[in-house]
Amino acid sequence: MDLDIVLQLADSSVRLATPLLLACLAGLYSERSGVFDIGLEGKMLIAAFFAAATAAVTGSAWVGLAAGLAASLVFSMLHAVASITFRGNQLISGVAINFLAVGMTALLGHTWFRQGGQTPQLVGDARFHAIELPGAARLADVPVIGPVYAEVISGHSILVYIAFLAVPLTWWVLYRTRFGLRLRAVGENPAAVDTAGISVPLLRYQALVITGILCGIAGAYLSTSMNAGFVREMTAGKGFIALAALIFAKWRPWPALFATLLFGLLEAIGIRFQNVELGGIGTIPVQFMQALPYILTVVILAGFVGKAIPPRAGGEPYVKEE
């Protein structure tokens, strides 16, 4: 493999990892607060739809992003009401949100655009475009570093940079701020937080607001940056893969970056090398390459890559005892 292919792979890994990373960090806030969220998928999907639909109508990707955020937030608050206020089953709530997103996007897409559930092709300012980082063109000729900077690091949309900046930011919030301390505490022992005079529901609601925002960005990225419009069920399990990455990362921000990059790379390989010829054995079918991220997810969940201990209070609604 020559450098070009490696660079291309790295470049598309970054692109493909971005929605996973955003969703993974979204899940991190939610699960660190003690709320399981298998509805990441649905939040991304609804955000992707509203972002693309709004961008298509207004012609502005930024207005689209705002609409995507709002939609994702609404769904996130639905999950919060069900699992925090009404102490419902968090898994079931997540499943409901995923279906609601699938149904609503297709239904509204059909009603608004009559294009079989798709939004119109986004052109011009309705899409987030690549940003050339300063000096990319000038450095391009410098061996190795130049192409890496120009191809892999430079030339992504603003949302990609937001996603990658969210990693150190999340680390800082988690380990250096009051909110982070309380967030980590409430997922481990909500009773400790409650008896320390802090409202458990409020804290969890705050966490789910952040989850909603991050899923919103992820969805908007899918439909207005990575692609030029919304396609039905375009999240294709990314929300679940992000959850697997979160487990792989043991609920920590920096490892989350590497886990999602790994999945991004895998997907990039799957796209780049379809119908791979293996000397003597035959071709690896394209379907296998497409299923690879899902298979890897199962392998990671099977714990063949180390045991992960989730936040102790995860998944259980908080009820006072004694």
């Binding site: 380990y175 250096r176 701020t177 009051r178 909110f179 982070g180 301390l181 309380r182 980590r184 505490a185 481990e188 022992n189 400790a192 937080v193 320390a196 005079g197 802090i198 102790r312």
Partner: peptide, 20 residues
């Protein structure tokens, strides 16, 4: 909070500012 240090447990709820 079992996986917190003694200090972190003591300041939880009375941090007195946004930063730890």
């Amino acid at each position: 909070v079992e996986n917190f240090t003694v200090l972190e447990n003591i300041v939880l709820g009375v941090e007195g500012g946004a930063l730890l």
